[in-house]
Design a protein around this nucleic acid. Structure first.
Length: 436
RNA sequence: GGGCUCGUAGUGAAGUGGUCUAUCACGCCUCCCUGUCACGGAGGAGAUCGCCGGUUCAAAUCCGGUCGGGCCCGCCA
């Protein structure tokens, strides 16, 4: 029966069978140490028999093997135990030298990332690199658990669309049996329709954007968390739900992955029980006053402002999370709700974390006539199949609702403190990478 | 779409007109080594300096083009 690396120490005195990959060889003459890697980590094997060592001659890191050996308690061994009197059986010999080293921490300098992604399948055999994606998996689990507890139904919506989208980002176009289709840049319209069925829905799925952006925070394929909830009394209720979700997921991650985060040099988490809110106008004013760089005419926040307000809030309120709310009407999309208390702004908030926008959190226009009016004003063809069925949901009754589009890759990036969003992505897609 | 930058063994770096017949570290190969854990020691192989053209007595080094990266701005579910 197979014993996993982390359980070896529980079998002192017994002979156990481990399976894994050859991770490291250290030959010291009459004594050889090898590390075997499995899904739990590493186990150290001590080999004295020359014939056993000889089985590994010419075999490279990555060789798949089994080891049968006696578990010996040994304070000098990592984990406190190791295998002795080992019998090695090679299952899949690897003779080619790997193109990158996998048993040492791999540098994430920007100019080296291309090499890492080129050899991603091997690079992810590095235990340090794996931690990023175990943390990512946990974040997603905590998010699902939070939303499940709050009675959100997880849905999946189509990614092949009939051309129309809610506007904004550039879309990928493709041939669909002779007609033009696009790849979804967001499940926006579908999740709103589903409020009419389930009240509260969410989806975790890829979204595709064809922008020619080449920055550390953009990719062509991103993992989006989309949430939509009905019967909300105001914008704050939506902002708080998304804020609470984020705080909960971050706190749990920092608790459960404390060691991993530390070894990845993640910053200390500084959050409060509620995410502080500033209007865009307030941020422009504060930033202009503090830096002398006048942004009061900007419709959106500039990247430097996003960084600045995060640092400001961390200092003033002890929160690395902050909301920018009440965006100017010039920036609105047709599905946003205009602020009834100030028609020059829309009820739309951006959630910022450690200097980066990670989610947009608006309240939707739910009144059919008002929505049609806003769509027409935006130049949208309301008879187009991409919009017709969307409007049907409103015509037959949708309550006031709001939600968010939330960048999972960016959340992972910022949680760990990675410089580039692509480092938080298994196989990133950008303007010049489509493989592996 | 605009701007700025970088391409040197498998990997990461040094070298920015001549002493470069290109240096170092890791990895790889051979040998030595009984407590390694970035093991140590001795030796060895491995690079037409991204590609094309130009300037020059002389180009990894300067210039132009090209291909491939990176970073920022714009744009942005």
């Amino acid at each position: 029966m197979r014993i996993l690396s982390s359980d070896v120490k529980d079998h002192v005195g017994k002979t156990v069978h481990v399976q894994g990959w050859l991770h490291k060889k250290r030959l010291l003459g009459g004594l050889t140490f090898i590390n075997v890697r499995d899904r739990r980590g590493l186990v150290q094997v001590v080999i004295k028999d020359k014939a056993e060592v000889e089985k590994l001659r010419g075999l490279q890191i990555g060789t798949v093997l089994t080891v049968d050996g006696k578990v010996v308690e040994e304070p000098r061994a990592p984990g406190g135990a190791e295998l002795h009197d080992a019998v090695v059986t090679v299952l899949v010999p690897v003779t080619d030298e790997p193109p990158i080293e996998i048993d040492k921490p791999i540098g994430h300098k920007p100019e080296n990332l291309d090499t890492l992604f080129e050899h991603r399948a091997l690079n992810l055999r590095n235990l340090q690199e794996q931690k990023i994606f175990k943390i990512r998996a946990s974040l997603l689990r905590y998010i699902r658990e939070f939303l499940g507890k709050h009675e959100f139904v997880e849905i999946q919506t189509p990614k092949l669309l009939a051309g129309a989208t809610e506007g904004g980002a550039e879309v990928f176009k493709l041939d669909y049996f002779g007609q033009e289709a696009t790849l979804a840049q967001s499940p926006q319209l579908y999740k709103q329709m589903m409020v009419g069925a389930f009240e509260r829905v969410f989806e975790i799925a890829p979204a595709f954007r064809a922008e020619l952006s080449a920055t550390t925070r953009h990719m062509s394929e991103v993992m989006m968390l989309d949430i939509e909830m009905g019967f909300v009394k105001d914008h704050d209720e939506v902002l708080d739900m998304v804020g609470d979700l984020t705080i909960d997921a971050l706190r749990r991650t920092y608790k459960d992955h404390a060691d991993d985060l530390k070894s990845l040099n993640a910053p200390e988490l500084v959050v409060t029980d509620k995410v502080p809110k500033f209007s865009v106008a307030e941020i422009h004013e504060l930033y202009t006053k503090a830096t002398g760089n006048d942004t009061t005419e900007e419709k959106d926040l500039i990247p430097d402002e996003e960084k600045w307000i995060c640092e400001y809030t961390k200092k003033q309120s002890g929160s690395e999370l902050v909301y920018a709310v009440k965006f100017p009407i010039e920036a609105m999309k047709f599905y946003h709700q205009v602020n009834p208390e100030d028609p020059t702004t829309v009820l739309w908030g951006d959630l910022l974390f450690r200097g980066l926008e990670i989610a947009t959190v608006p309240l939707r226009e739910y009144r059919y006539d008002k929505l049609v009016e806003q769509m027409k004003a935006a130049g949208v063809d309301v008879e187009h199949p991409g919009y017709k069925y969307y409007l049907q949901a409103f015509k037959f009754g949708l309550p006031q609702h709001g939600g968010c589009g939330y960048g999972i890759d960016r959340l992972v990036q910022k949680t760990i403190g990675l410089k580039n969003v692509k480092e938080a992505t298994l196989f990133p897609r950008d303007i010049n990478r489509l493989a592996p």
